[in-house]
Simulated scan of single mutants.
Amino acid sequence: MKRTPFIRHSGKIAVLPVDNIDTDQIIPSREMKTVGRTGLADGLFAGWRYVSADDRTPNPDFVLNDPEHSDATILVAGENFGCGSSREHAVWALFEYGIRVIIARSFGDIFFNNCLRNGILPIRLSPEKTDRIMALTRDTTFVIDLPEQQLHFGDSAVRFDISAYGKRLLVEGLDPIDLTLKSFEQIRHFHREDETLRPWIYRAVH
C-alpha cells in the first residue's frame, strides 16, 4: 500500500505518561469490527476516551478529548508502549486518528515494527529525554526530520536512531510488499536463470 513519504513532520504533542500501554488499550478487541485499515479511529483508546463505550460519551479527563490537544499528531508515552498482542489494528487506528509520530522510552517489538510498516514513526528516547519532552508546554511545536534523524523543539535538537530498513519504508512511503516489488525485474531475472539451471524445480508449476 503506497503511502505519503515521511520526510519532515511538524506537529504538537499529546502526553500519555503511562507505562505498559498495551494494544488492547490502544484498540479494544470489541472495536475491531473490520479487517481493513479504516473505520478504527473512533475506537482508539475507547476504554479511556469514553465514559461509556456504548453511547460514546467523552471522558473529559482524557488527554485526546482536551480541545487544546485536538490537533496533536505526536503521542508521547512511557515504557513498553504497544506491548501485548500483535494486532496491527492498533497502528491502523492511531494512523487513521492522525498520529504520525510516537515518542516513548521503549516499545513492544511487534508494535514498533508494525508502525514502520504502516506510516508511523516510532522514536525511542532515554527516560531523561522523554521526561523532558513530557514537561514541555502543549504549545511547543516539534519538527521531526527523518532523513537527518533529528527531533527539534524550541532551541533544542535530539538525535534518534532508526534502522536503515525502517527509515527507507517511511521515507519512500512503502510497505514491505512495495519494497519487494521494487526488485521485481531482478527477481524475475533470477527465476529465469534458475529455471535454466534447475528445470526440475519448476516442472510441477507448468
Rank of each mutant, 00 (worst) to 15 (best):
G154A: 08
K167A: 15
I144W: 04
V143C: 05
I133A: 04
I162A: 12
I187Q: 14
E96F: 09
S156D: 14
E96K: 08
G154S: 05
W200I: 02
E185H: 04
I187R: 13
R56K: 14
T57C: 11
K167C: 13
S70F: 09
S183E: 15
F107N: 12
I133R: 02
S85T: 11
E185F: 04
S86R: 10
Y165R: 11
D161P: 03
T137R: 08
K167S: 15
D71F: 07
S126P: 01
R168M: 03
S163Y: 04
D194Q: 10
N113I: 02
K129Y: 06
V63K: 00
F95W: 07
R124G: 08
F95I: 01
L136I: 05
A104C: 08
R56Y: 10
S106T: 05
I120T: 06
D66I: 06
D175W: 07
F153P: 01
L75F: 11
L169Q: 10
L121S: 03
R105C: 11
P199Q: 10
S183F: 12
P127K: 02
D155Y: 01
R56L: 14
S86Q: 10
Q149Y: 04
R87T: 11
A77P: 04
E195K: 15
A164G: 13
G154T: 01
P60Y: 07
N114P: 10
Q150P: 02
W200G: 12
D66P: 06
I74P: 07
T73Q: 08
A77K: 03
E68M: 09
R132Y: 00
R87N: 12
R138K: 12
V171N: 12
E68H: 09
A93P: 07
F107H: 10
I123E: 01
G166Y: 01
P58K: 06
E68R: 12
Q149R: 15
G98I: 02
D66N: 15
F184I: 14
Y165D: 13
F190K: 09
L174V: 00
L151E: 03
Q150F: 01
S85K: 08
D66V: 05
G84W: 05
I162S: 12
P67W: 11
D175H: 07
Q186S: 13
H89W: 02
G166L: 00
V143A: 04
C115T: 08
L116P: 02
T196Q: 15
A104I: 04
L179C: 08
I144Q: 03
L151R: 02
G154H: 06
I162N: 11
I187F: 13
A157Y: 00
A90I: 05
A164Q: 15
E148W: 02
L64H: 10
L170P: 09
D161T: 14
E88Y: 00
R168Y: 00
A93Q: 07
R105Y: 00
H89T: 04
L121Y: 01
I103C: 03
D145P: 05
N65F: 00
L151V: 03
V91T: 08
R192S: 15
S156F: 00
A93G: 09
T130G: 06
